[in-house]
C-alpha cells in the first residue's frame, strides 16, 4: 500500500513537472508593456521643452485623444515614424506630445527643423526619469490615451503604417 502511494506520488510529480514545461515552453516569453493598456495614467508631469512650465493631466484631459511620443534626435527608428506623426498632426481630435528623451537641446531643435515638427506640445526628459512613469524602456515608444487618461494602446518601437491606420480609426470612433 505504502509503495503504491510512493509510486503514485512520484508519477504525479513527474506528470506535474512535464505539464509545467509543456505549458510554459509554449508561451511567448518576450517582454513588453502592452499589458498595461487599459490602465489610467497618473501623476503626469512633463517638463516643457522651451517654456518654464510643466505639461500635466489638465492638458491631456482637454483633448479627446493624446499621443505621447518619446523620441530623440540620435534615435534612428524615430526617423522612420516621423512622417506618420506629421500626418497625425492634422487629425482634429488628436493632440501630439513629443517627449525629447536624453537628448541635446540643439540636436533636437535641428532634428525638428530638418524633418518637421509634428508636436502640439514638446517636453524634455533630460535624464529619462519622467519616462519611468510611462513604463518606457526604450525609444521610440508612444502611448495613445483618451480624455479619461486611459491607455488605449502602447506602441513599442516606431509607429508603422498599420499603427497609423489604427490610430486614425480609433480617434474617429
Amino acid at each position: 500500500m505504502q509503495v503504491k502511494i510512493i509510486k503514485l506520488l512520484i508519477v504525479s510529480i513527474i506528470i506535474f513537472i512535464i505539464g509545467v514545461f509543456f505549458i510554459s515552453l509554449d508561451k511567448n516569453t518576450s517582454y513588453d508593456t502592452k499589458g498595461l493598456e487599459g490602465q489610467i495614467l497618473k501623476n503626469i508631469k512633463l517638463e516643457h521643452f522651451k517654456e518654464n512650465k510643466f505639461i500635466t493631466e489638465k492638458y491631456l484631459k482637454k483633448n479627446d485623444f493624446t499621443l505621447i511620443n518619446f523620441w530623440a534626435s540620435w534615435c534612428g527608428p524615430c526617423r522612420l515614424e516621423h512622417p506618420f506623426l506629421l500626418k497625425l498632426k492634422n487629425e482634429k481630435n488628436l493632440k501630439l506630445i513629443g517627449v525629447n528623451f536624453k537628448d541635446k537641446k540643439n540636436s533636437a531643435i535641428n532634428f525638428l527643423n530638418d524633418h518637421g515638427d509634428p508636436y502640439h506640445e514638446l517636453a524634455k526628459d533630460e535624464f529619462g526619469k519622467y519616462s519611468i512613469n510611462f513604463g518606457i524602456y526604450g525609444i521610440p515608444e508612444s502611448i495613445l490615451v483618451n480624455k479619461n487618461l486611459v491607455i488605449i494602446k502602447k506602441f513599442i518601437g516606431p509607429i508603422s503604417e498599420n499603427d497609423y491606420i489604427y490610430i486614425k480609426e480609433t480617434i474617429k470612433k
Binding site: K102, F127, G128, K129, S131, I132
Partner: peptide, 13 residues
C-alpha cells in the same frame, strides 16, 4: 545600460 541607469536614478529619488 541606459535603462538601468535611469531606474537607479528614479529609485534613489
Amino acid at each position: 545600460s541606459d535603462f538601468a541607469q535611469t531606474m537607479k536614478l528614479v529609485v534613489r529619488d
